[in-house]
Design a protein around this nucleic acid. Sequence first.
RNA 1: GGAGGAUUAGCUCAGCGGGAGAGCGCCUGCCUUACAAGCAGGAUGUCACAAGUUCAAUCCUUGUAUCCUCCACCA
Length: 884
Amino acid sequence: MKAVELAKAYNPKDFEERIYQQWMDDKAFAPSEDGRDHFTIVMPPPNVTGILHMGHALNNTLQDIIIRYKRMTGYRTLWVPGTDHAGIATQNVVERQLAKEGLRRQDLGREKFIERTWTVKHKHHAIISSQLKKMGCSCDWDHERFTMDEGLSRAVREAFVTLYERGLIYKGKYLVNYCPKCGTALADDEVEYENMPGKLYDVRYPYADGSGYITVATTRPETMFGDVAVAVHPDDERYKDIVGKELLLPLTDRKIRIIADSFVEKDFGTGMVKITPAHDPNDWECGRRNNLEAINLLNPDGTLNENVPEKYRGLDPVSARRLVVEDLREGGYLVRETDHAHDVGHCYRCHTVVEPYLSDQWFVSMKGMAEKALKALSDGDIVFYPKRWENTYIHWMESIRDWCISRQLWWGHRIPVWYCRDCGEMIVSREDVTECPKCHSHNLEQDPDVLDTWFSSWLWPFSTLGWPDRTKDLDTFFPTNTLVSAYDIIFFWISRMIMASEEFMVNAPFRDIVITGLVRDKQGRKMSKSLGNGIDPLEVIDVYGADAMKFTLCYLAAQGQDVQIDMDSFKMGSRFANKIWNATRFLLMNAEGRSLVPVTPDRLDVMDKWIYTRLNRTVEAISRAMDGYRFNDAAQAVYSYFWNDFCDWYVEAAKRRLFSGSDAAKDLSFSIMIDLLSKGMRLLHPFLSFVTEEIWQKLPGSSGLLISQSYPTVDLAFDFPSEAELVSHLQEAVRIVRAARSQLGIAPEKKFSVVIRPSSGFGAAALFEDQKDLMAAFMGASELVVDTSASVDTSQAFPSNALGYEVFSFVKEAIDVPAEITKLRAEIAKAEKSLEGTMKKLSNPQFVQNAKKEAVAKEESKKAEFEEVISKCREHISLLEKLA
RNA sequence: GGAGGAUUAGCUCAGCGGGAGAGCGCCUGCCUUACAAGCAGGAUGUCACAAGUUCAAUCCUUGUAUCCUCCACCA
């Protein structure tokens, strides 16, 4: 065999792009054809407004790790990628562009505007796809979907019409949250509240009969023109007698009544509330209870309309407020103003102050669906990781309100409802309608509004697989298995997907819901454009490579915890990838003249047996970690296996055999290392996909693409617990020798003698025929690892089933004797303290009685150990004293 | 007002009933036939505070403090 040249330095740019192309060419992401169990993930579709940020990188990294792991462990995997049209957000982007050209969307007209939006979509979609590819996401591009695809649009119509037919969708005039800037209604959870300083105004409302006045408190005096009553609490003794009296609304000539309603807090302000049903959600409810009129004061653009006195018309609420306050003061109505901080709703997209606005909107009634969704959880059909999110889910479902799904936008799914201009008939239809079924008029008009974006994304797990058609994909891959998402969209998206799926598929859309934390900067702040503290995944890939990014994120992604990172964090993954690269390079440059021989258990020495056993344990640890979505545990397991076990101990030990000995021995040693490396690449592949694939293809004896290989499993023929324990003792011994060398300042090239002799507390002997075999194995192994001349002290008899070791190093030169003695005394003191604790436990009859047997045994062995340490240290001290 | 999370080494964070861990940083010595992006050794912690449960608590319970997030919301 010839040596294989691996580039001197690890440089991900040399191969990442090429490898991804290879995977694509090989159709490696497509689900396999055979009939194994399916494993499906649908990717949370990124918005086509922007480019992917670190949060997406984390999400998709975890999904990719799951899907690659499942693919290699034999599932028929499908990872569905796609993007979301993101109604408001995308429309905002285009409108901002237009604004720069001095245009509004109305100037273009609906059709042209949508056309233009599609170009924005195409542009961002291209960026997003290329980002996902650079990250190495192994999603099946043949299954890629967009929420406004023909098929998904049909799904949206099907869902809308079906719900309408089931009586779950209705239209009505309601008070909704309205963003004047976006010009559209918002759902309740699209409003973000922010505490802002404001003022509380106490205003006099005179009685209509001139017999005096009352005082009401308000933060929004400009809405007083919409007042239709003043409410007091029915039990409020102060106001019992005035309920029913008429008031004259200041600055107008309108009269309103005092009513009683129990939602009023007696203790807040004056205990009197003006009721403005069209401009406050509470007042709206109160108005409905008391059959009050709602007077809308706003134009769609947020300015005051014809229902206010002329001088205020056309003003925005803030300027109107200033003017109204001034006029109230002048008129002697304003009693006082006090500072009052309160929460004000803002649009979650453009951050404009949201106004409660009375308008015609479409709603989905949610109660029944929420009950089904709650049942899915209590039946165990869905499971949250971590579990604590279940409370949040339950709470949201239990306090759910109807969902406003109409948006006054142009970009999105047009509501499939037509109105006949001639007879007023309303037609809800799956197909486009051109003729009124009632009067046969062709004078029809489609509802101008579009649907909330989430009305398409809540269908995502099945609409992407072909629903409403009963496709083969839907049969094969639904329900999906795992959903990975950040917690900020549990309400928007996850909860609604569950409801939709229960409603349309009579099944949960997925079983495992993995909630990741958010990615934050090192100050713990959320990464955001406005703060400018974001890290661009592409930049990370450019500097460190995709594998480094992926591995680092995985390593830091403790279940559900936020991840705090900066650019330097990724060095971790980068160093690991580099280590893998170099370990391989080392082996391949020594391939010259070697040939591969079969690796069988009987040909292994003790170190070989140890590393194969470690490999088995690592496979188990990864399996456990992946089953519980504990990604950081999995990453840690592969890291310490490959670096600490394989590189630091095994390869170092194997060097001896590789560089000296017979050709046969060299071939065997080489073959074992190739085997381990090949298994190692398979083990690591889900976590560092590119570098392992690149290496795999260069390994002697490998064929095909690594991505399609099977994952290592626990191999009982290569499992040697006793040898593994022996080596862990050996490692301990070696560490002692090295520490002695380092602490005593013995030069590396200076050999010194080590005596190994048996001691108690080690039970691996049973496996060996006699002590000589054990010691031979031990010595053999130690020679590989420690650069010392070692000898066995056979002067003491081995206890029959308790073998062990202890290491003495005798070094006459270069010892600071008094310092050594001080150190040993400190060690004695420490051991004595530990011994004291142990003795306390052992002399406690309750401990001996109640504690687990292993715990007691452990304490006993600890006792022996401490005693031994103490006596050994004393022995050393006396030796040192003799030297001195 | 409700709910949840965090508090462990200088920094970022794992662990979670029986001997305090990782990465980075720091100190010491090494360019040992891959890797100085490396190797070997080392120092560093009242596991926030207080009570309780237990033979045993960093881990469970309760309370306190500080920080963060979500939900609801009083004009």
